[in-house]
Write a protein that binds this DNA or RNA. Structure first.
Lengths: 233, 233
DNA sequence: CGACAGCGTGACAATTATATGACACTAATG
DNA sequence: CATTAGTGTCATATAATTGTCACGCTGTCG
């Protein structure tokens, strides 16, 4: 599976290190920032999957950063868990109102932290993945693992299924072969990029003549794009 | 790669010189202005890639200039890093709210300065690569690799796409064939400069009769210019 | 006017990118 | 163990793109 990246934002380095250790044991990648400004830069540059955000920080407060994140479309849906000292718990209502997904009071146990992170990531994933997706005549049900087009069931291999799944949640955007390899095959794969071509071919075949050039478009020199819109080339 | 131009705006010439040295060592081009009025003129004329802006200046303050830049569409997305004395740090919230991308407290180390500049330029690059650009009837979407004019999809080769992309982020300025070769074909290319002519021709063709002479103008003896404004030669 | 440089245009062959079919290898299944 | 479905790589076929060139037009300058 894909390794998720978590950004911890806190001005106390002890907290950051504790969290980092816990996260790495649990198989996450961890980034650190000690103030809101660095955090914002890291979020833009590294696009982490989740942010742990301390409430009280010098300069810009966590709440301000949170609001800033929510305002920008690129980061609007990024899961954020706020960290807070016991005494500030009352403020958390404000935090949740501003778009935090969860919060934890210091001190917290690493176990609980990991649990909440997992939960938040699962919810985020669920938002993107668990509902059946229907585009045009194509019905994709990730729970039952069924794919049909105009009520006619399709058959495809696991890789084609993942590939289709990836495309469905990333429509109208061109991905290079390398990016597709990363997302669909997961992590650091050393593999011939042309393999992607072959699986694209197989997926197209599986989608049948209807979806042949309709859904998956080749963008010469760039990669592939899934789109339900017909594009005049 | 491309050499970025940075404009330093400060009323203290010592600061300006120090920054200039640091920037030139790091491979940037550097412009100087000692007040907001000159700065504004330079921004319009030279279109720098980033502005270092002092907070306190006689006459117009940095903050006012910043607001002015943000109001004008042409300069709205120009990265601005504010410079501030320690004592004024509280005001920086106001600065960030007004659209500064970052700030630095004097005195600062050249290293840190360069790091922040790099980071800001990187972010700007990312933004430019991600956001669709619309000028007149022309819509350029780098994410989906779609180009359309008056909602009619256009088709063009990868090189024409890159060429258009370059022009869109460098409008209203004449580029020689050599410069275009450098920017669009990347780095040290040994190639017939007249190849550029051919690709200009292809791009014009792809843009259709509408954009034929409208967007890309020939400047005899100098090169080409992309502009949404009609220019009387 | 005439020579000339700068540019536009269409054609074309070389190059490069992508599509497709075949095959060997692996893991899963009964 | 035999069978089967699935995977990754390769060779070949097909298609799109690219750089160059030759030719013609147009404005410039003496």
């Amino acid at each position: 599976m894909e390794e998720s990246t978590v950004l911890i934002v806190d001005d106390e380095s002890a907290i950051r290190d504790m969290v980092t250790v816990a996260l790495e044991v649990a198989g996450y990648r961890c980034l650190q920032a000690e103030n809101a400004r660095d955090a914002h830069a890291l979020i833009i540059d590294e696009s982490p999957d989740l942010v742990l955000l301390d409430w009280m920080m010098p300069e810009t407060s966590g709440l301000e950063l949170l609001r800033r994140l929510r305002r920008d479309e690129l980061t609007a849906k990024l899961p954020v868990i706020m960290l807070t000292a016991k005494a500030e718990e009352d403020n958390m209502i404000q935090g949740l109102d501003s778009g935090a997904d969860d919060y934890m009071s210091k001190p917290f146990s690493p176990r609980e932290l990991i649990a909440r992170i997992k939960s938040a990531l699962r919810r985020q994933d669920a938002k993107n993945q668990e509902e059946p997706i229907q585009v045009d005549g194509l019905l994709f049900d990730p729970i039952s693992h069924h794919v049909s087009i105009n009520d006619k069931a399709l058959s495809m291999g696991p890789t084609e299924f993942r590939l289709l799944s990836f495309f469905l949640s990333h429509q109208d955007r061109v991905y290079s072969r390398g990016q597709i390899l990363d997302h669909v095959w997961g992590g650091n794969v050393y593999m011939d990029e042309r393999t992607v071509d072959v699986h694209i071919r197989r997926l197209r075949k599986a989608l049948g003549i209807d979806g042949h050039e309709r859904f998956i478009q080749t963008v010469r020199g760039a990669g592939y794009r899934f789109s339900q819109k017909l594009v005049a080339d």
